[in-house]
Design a protein around this nucleic acid. Structure first.
Lengths: 348, 348
DNA sequence: CTGAAAGCGCTTACAG
DNA sequence: CTGAAAGCGCTTACAG
C-alpha cells in the first residue's frame, strides 16, 4: 500500500541508452550537446527519440553532485514579513533564475544583530551546495556581512558591505527624489515642501538629501518647508499640518503612507489635490497610490530589478562569464517616477 | 587566478573518518544516529570531535541522491506579483520547512489558462527531485490541477482540486464574515450594510454569503443594505454613497480597499467614524488598516498559516508519519477578526 | 560494535 | 564517432 507511488520508476539515462542502443556516455553527450564532441546525426537522432519516448528528464541532483554545481541559488531575506515590497525582490530573483535554468531557494531570517555569529540560514544554503547566495536586507545601508557568506559567491541587496568586498545593489533614492523636485519645478512649483521621516535610516537621508540638493540646484528656498513626522500616515498628517502655514503649492512626502496622512490633512483644511496642493509620495507601495483620491504620483523602488540584478551578478561569476567583483562601488538602480493624478501646475 | 576559491576544499565524510580512525560507515551512523545501530560511546565521541574540528557538514546533495529524498519542497505560486499577501504564504511555508529541515524552492507562474498543458514550472521542480509540491493559487476556488503535479505528493493553497484528490487549504471567509456581523450585532447594530464586490470570485460569494447568513440568523433585514462596486477604493466610495441613504449604523466592506473608499465617502457626508458610522473591512491588507483614521477593524486572511499548513501536510506524507489524503474536504482555516478603532456602538 | 562494498544517476577525462 | 570506467559524497544492507 505504501509503495503505490514508488513503483512509478522514472526513466534514467541508462534506460535511454539501452533503448537507443548506445552508451550512457553518448546519451549524455547528445542531450547536453557537449562541446568538442561529434556524434553522428543519425545516432543523435536515435538518442533524442528514445529520450522523448521515455519522457526522460535528467536528475539534477545527480548532475549537481557530479559537476559540483547545484545550479541552485539561495536568497536570504531579512525580515521579509515586515517589508511590503520584498515579494517583488523574490519575483525578480526567481524569474531571472529561471531564465538561467537556476532554481531559487528561499530562507527568511530575523534581523541579525550580531554579525559575528554565522547565521544558520547561510549554513543551510551551504549544506545544499548552492552556487551563490543573495543576502537581501532592506533597512541598513552598510552591514558587516556574516563571514560564512563568503564561502560562496555572494551579493547584497539593499546594503553595502562594510568591507567593500561584496557586490551590492541599492535603490538610487537620492536621484529619485531629485527627479521629483525637477518634475515639480518644471510644472511651475517654487514653494515645494518636504514631509520628512523622523527615522534615521538611509532612505530618509537619501530622499531628504535629494530634495535639498535639487531645491538648491533650482535656486529655491527650503527654510520652513521641511517638517518631520513618524514615517506613517499619522506622521504625514502631523508634518503636513505643520507645513501648510508656509503655503507650499506642492508637498513631497517621504513615503506613500505619509502621503496618505497628507491627503487627510489637506482635506480637513479644505485644500483640494492637486488643485490647491500637489502631493508626491515615495515607494509606490500598493495599494496606496491607486486607492487614493486622486491616485498618487510617487516614485517606485526597483525591487524586481534588484532581485534580477543580484541573480545576474551571481550568474556571471558562477558561469565564469563575468569577472569577479572588480568594482567596490555598489550599483545604484534607478527609482522611476510614476505619475498619476496628484500633481498639477500651481494656481496662478 | 580563477581557482582561488576552488582551493577551499571542504571536509568530506572521508576526512572525518580518517581523522577519527574509523570507517565512513561509522561516521555516518554516529552523525545520523542511525536507529538499531550501536556504536561505543568512546568511538562516537571521537567521531564527533573529528567532525567538529574539521567543521564537517554533510553534503545534502549527495545525501539526497543516495536516499532518494531531496528534502526540498517546491512552492509554485500563481501570480505572486499581483497578490499582496503572497509574501506571507511564502514566509509560513519557509519557516515551517526550516522547522522540518526542509528547503523551500520557489517558482512563480503566470495564470495558467490551460490545465491540460503540464506547466514547465512543475517539471522544473520534478527535475530537482523535490519531495513535494505546493501549488498556491489565490483567485480560484476550484481548479483542475495539472496532471504532472501528482508525480509527487502535492497540496493546494487557495483552491480545491476538482478531482478532490489533492489536499487543499482555504481561508474560511464565510465564517470570517459571520464573525464580523455577530460582533457588530453584539455592539448593538441592527442596520448593517454590506458593500459588495461586483467581481465574481469565491471570496465575493463567501463574504457576502456570511453576511447574509449572519444577518438572517440575527433576524435582521438586509433589503436596501447591499450595494455593489468594483473591489477597489473607487468601488467602495460608490457603494457607500449608494448605501448611506438607507441609514446604516455600520458598514461592512468586501475588502480594505473598498473600506478606504468608504472612509472618504463618509467623510464627504460629514459622517465621523466610528461615531456616526462603524466600518469594517476584510483582508487586513497592509498598510491600509493602520494608515486609516481611525485604524480599520478588519479580518485577516490566514496566509502564513496556509503556507505552514501546506508544508506540514506534505511533511506528514513524505516522512510517512501521516496517512495519505484520507479526506476529500478541503481544510478551512479561520480568518481572525482584528479589532482596531473603526467600530463603536451606534448612537442611541 | 565496526567496516568493506555497492550504488544513488549522472558527467567526464581517456582510450580507441 | 563511440564507449568503459571512474568518481561526485553520501547511506545502507550485509557480514563479521
Amino acid at each position: 500500500m505504501t509503495e503505490t507511488r514508488l513503483t512509478e520508476k522514472t526513466a534514467g539515462i541508462r534506460d535511454v541508452a539501452a533503448r537507443a542502443g548506445v552508451s550512457q556516455t553518448t546519451v549524455s553527450h547528445v542531450l547536453n550537446a557537449t562541446p568538442h564532441t561529434r556524434v553522428s546525426e543519425e545516432t543523435a537522432a536515435r538518442v533524442r527519440v528514445a529520450a522523448e519516448e521515455l519522457g526522460y528528464r535528467p536528475n539534477r541532483l545527480a548532475r549537481g553532485l557530479r559537476t559540483q554545481a547545484s545550479e541552485m541559488i539561495g536568497l536570504l531575506t531579512e525580515e521579509i514579513a515586515t517589508t511590503p515590497h520584498a515579494g517583488r525582490i523574490i519575483l525578480g530573483a526567481q524569474e531571472e533564475a529561471s531564465r538561467h535554468n537556476l532554481t531559487l531557494a528561499i530562507i527568511n531570517s530575523e534581523l541579525n544583530p550580531d554579525p559575528e555569529v554565522p547565521p544558520v540560514q547561510v549554513q543551510a544554503f551551504l549544506d545544499r551546495q548552492v552556487d551563490g547566495i543573495i543576502y537581501a536586507t532592506v533597512y541598513h545601508d552598510e552591514i558587516v556581512a556574516p563571514e560564512n557568506l563568503s564561502a560562496r559567491p555572494a551579493v547584497l541587496i539593499g546594503a553595502r558591505d562594510s568591507s567593500g568586498i561584496l557586490p551590492a545593489v541599492l535603490p538610487d533614492e537620492r536621484a529619485g527624489a531629485v527627479a521629483v523636485v525637477e518634475m515639480l519645478v518644471a510644472r511651475g512649483h517654487r514653494r515645494i515642501a518636504f514631509a520628512a521621516s523622523a527615522e534615521d535610516v538611509p532612505a530618509t537621508r537619501g530622499r531628504l538629501g535629494g530634495y535639498l540638493e535639487a531645491m538648491a540646484a533650482a535656486g529655491l528656498p527650503t527654510e520652513g518647508l521641511v517638517a518631520e513626522g513618524s514615517s506613517d500616515a499619522r506622521g504625514g498628517y502631523t508634518a503636513t499640518n505643520a507645513l501648510l502655514d508656509a503655503g507650499p503649492t506642492a508637498l513631497f512626502c517621504y513615503n506613500d503612507r505619509m502621503a496618505m496622512g497628507a491627503y487627510r490633512a489637506a482635506g480637513e483644511c479644505g485644500l483640494s489635490i492637486p488643485g490647491d496642493l500637489s502631493v508626491v509620495g515615495f515607494d509606490d507601495q500598493a495599494p496606496i497610490p491607486e486607492s487614493l483620491f486622486p491616485p498618487l504620483t510617487t516614485v517606485a523602488l526597483p525591487h524586481y530589478e534588484m532581485g534580477a540584478w543580484a541573480v545576474d551578478a551571481l550568474y556571471a561569476v558562477v558561469s565564469g562569464s563575468g569577472e569577479r567583483a572588480t568594482s567596490f562601488a555598489p550599483t545604484l538602480l534607478p527609482c522611476p517616477l510614476v505619475e498619476r493624478e496628484s500633481v498639477a501646475a500651481p494656481r496662478a
